[in-house]
Amino acid sequence: MTKDKRTSMDAERLPPLNALRHFEAVARLGSFAAAANDLHVTHWAVGKQIRLLEDWFGVPLFERRPRGVVPTDQGAALLNDVNGAFARLSHSVTQLRHESVSRRITGVVRVNVLPSFALYWLMPRLAEFQTDFPDIDVRVSTTSRKLRYVGDAFDIGVRSGREDAAGLTSTTLMPDMRLPACSPAVLRSRPIATVADLRNHTLLHSTTTRTAWTDWLRQAGAPGLQGSRHLDFDHVFLQLSAAVEGLGLTLASLPLIEREIAAGRLVCPLSEPVWRAPDYTLVVNIERAEDKAVLAFKKWILAKAAPLRSESSRKGVKQKARR
């Protein structure tokens, strides 16, 4: 009973909430007529709500002028609090609605991605998806094969470059931009100030990226440069792990190593040229494209990659401006 009384007393200390809604509209739009149009009520109804609020506070909230109204000092102070309260309420409502919708989606999503993409990009983020969609079962598999050879054993996948084939749809996920990267310890022993300094270092390769260094060095204006040694690995994730352990320099995909860079495990000693490999592509099995669980995963992964797509667009505009 005590709790109910306290709630009732708190409500009595609040001004009329509908009047606050009218007050915010008038302050935002600068006139009673504009507020009436925005709220789909009459001019008279808006005026009545404002008078009700001014009577409740006992102070004028607006200064009437020939071309509209502006908040008084007291009105401006109230508007600041009202905007903050409405913003917090809007955030809570949006979050609650999202959680409600998320929790109603159930199903299975079979995700097939490149092994290096799974280890360095997807797995560190996957817990966020499971938090948002706890009733969707995500089953991750890895292979470097073209998805058209995987058959119908996947719903959604990520590959390097487009996959145009019957039964598949492709969407650009994010750009694959690459730079030389190594552990900080490597630089402490042999600093790198120019491309020519790479001749003093071990260059790391993988089976699927064997020509990457050749392409990058050609773009850097040093097509004949050779490292002091070369180490080869079967997989990109082994190549990246070797770089973290200080075994040499790798030509790394920046989306894959952003967390390694943030944690200080890898550094990029040269900031250019940035070599653009084929974009990471999101591939969807058409037969499962309208499944709600698949759509939820597709929307989520595109949103997680959006900052990198935007960054790439900005860099592209800058490069064109310099030409």
Rank of each mutant, 00 (worst) to 15 (best):
L231N: 04
T281G: 00
T42A: 13
V93D: 01
D4K: 11
S310H: 15
H205F: 11
S312W: 13
A220L: 00
V70F: 02
P115K: 09
I136F: 10
T194K: 01
E163Q: 06
M9R: 14
F32I: 13
A193N: 04
S100Y: 00
L168K: 00
S241M: 10
V283C: 13
R97C: 09
P71R: 01
R259A: 15
R6A: 09
F233L: 15
D73K: 15
T208A: 12
L251T: 02
A222F: 12
D152L: 11
W275M: 13
N18S: 02
G224F: 02
F129Q: 04
A181L: 02
K292V: 06
V317F: 13
P124V: 00
P60C: 06
E311P: 09
T209P: 15
T207C: 09
L53M: 11
P134H: 12
N112I: 10
V294C: 12
L147C: 01
E63C: 10
L61D: 12
L270W: 05
L282K: 07
L270I: 01
R309G: 10
Q95G: 11
T171C: 06
V267E: 08
S228M: 04
A212H: 09
L238K: 12
R323L: 06
L225S: 05
P15S: 03
L61E: 08
K3R: 08
D215W: 05
F154N: 01
I156P: 09
L53E: 11
P180K: 04
M9N: 04
S228W: 02
H91R: 15
L114V: 01
V138P: 00
K298S: 08
T207S: 14
C182Q: 03
M123V: 06
T143H: 14
L114S: 05
A76H: 01
L203W: 13
Q226S: 00
K3N: 08
R309L: 07
A127F: 15
A263T: 05
S241E: 07
T42R: 11
E272P: 03
P16A: 06
